[in-house]
């Protein structure tokens, strides 16, 4: 695009300037904007808002919101899919771990959680670490310590092993009056249990009665946005 020759005597200077702006190649115009912005962003220190440690209030907020919890159903689903992005961590002592542990779990006893040996496992951005203990007390303790150290990607198995046994290993058949959702959940748990531990799959038929409204669970967990063109 060549610039038009405009006789300065016949047009106002302002109009002349407008014409020149329009005649600039869009690529040059874009470059004029983004290169200075790029230089600025390359020069400023990044993440000025990032905090290494949470304040007590922030930690309290996170604990109350229950951000750290992952349900047994979610874990079962990931185990069935053999999802490589999770790492189950048993925080009980090694005797308990030897007696029984979830498939694929590793053992980091709570007393050893600050050991240098485990830093690479606990402080990383690759896998979701899921702490579990019999209940949730010890796993929550592990989570709070690692969270306060500024580590991310650590979560807690909701309800612990006890709830795992109750929901995945021997789920209770819902009452005949339960909602279809309850039956679907039961079937999923039965199927997940047998996929993980081996066994037969049977599907239950929900009763044809009208059912109470299914529970609404508020979702607060961050979920990824899938993109594409």
């Amino acid at each position: 695009m060549g610039r038009k020759e405009i006789s300065p005597g016949r047009v106002l200077i302002k109009k002349n300037q407008d014409m020149q702006l329009k005649n600039i190649n869009p690529r040059i115009l874009l470059a004029l904007f983004v290169i200075p912005l790029g230089i600025i962003i390359a020069a400023v220190p990044e993440n000025t808002t990032k905090q290494y440690k949470l304040t007590a209030q922030e930690l309290l907020d996170e604990v109350q919101a229950g951000y750290q919890y992952i349900t047994t159903d979610e874990v079962a689903e990931k185990l069935v899919q053999k999802d490589p992005s999770i790492q189950l961590i048993d925080v009980r002592n090694s005797d308990d771990y030897e007696t029984y542990h979830l498939p694929g779990a590793i053992n980091i006893p709570l007393s050893d959680i600050l050991s240098d040996e485990y830093v690479d496992i606990l402080d990383q951005g690759m896998r979701l670490n899921i702490f579990y203990s019999n209940g949730t007390v010890h796993s929550n303790e592990a989570w709070m310590i690692t969270r306060q150290l500024g580590y991310e990607n650590n979560y807690v198995l909701q309800g612990g092993l006890n709830y795992w046994v109750e929901t995945i290993m021997s789920p209770e058949k819902p009452a005949i009056t339960s909602s279809n959702d309850e039956f679907a959940k039961y079937d999923f748990r039965k199927a997940a249990g047998s996929a993980i531990y081996g066994g037969s799959v049977e599907v239950t038929e929900p009763a044809e009665q009208s059912s109470p409204l299914p529970e609404v669970k508020k979702k607060t967990k961050k979920k990824g946005v899938q993109g594409g063109c």
């Binding site: 690529r27 874009l30 983004v34 290169i35 790029g38 390359a42 400023v44 990044e46």
Partner: peptide, 17 residues
Amino acid sequence: SQGFLTFIIILVALAMF
């Protein structure tokens, strides 16, 4: 740093244009 990478990508993008 993220900022420096952004600057490099800007230059690469303009070169590709």
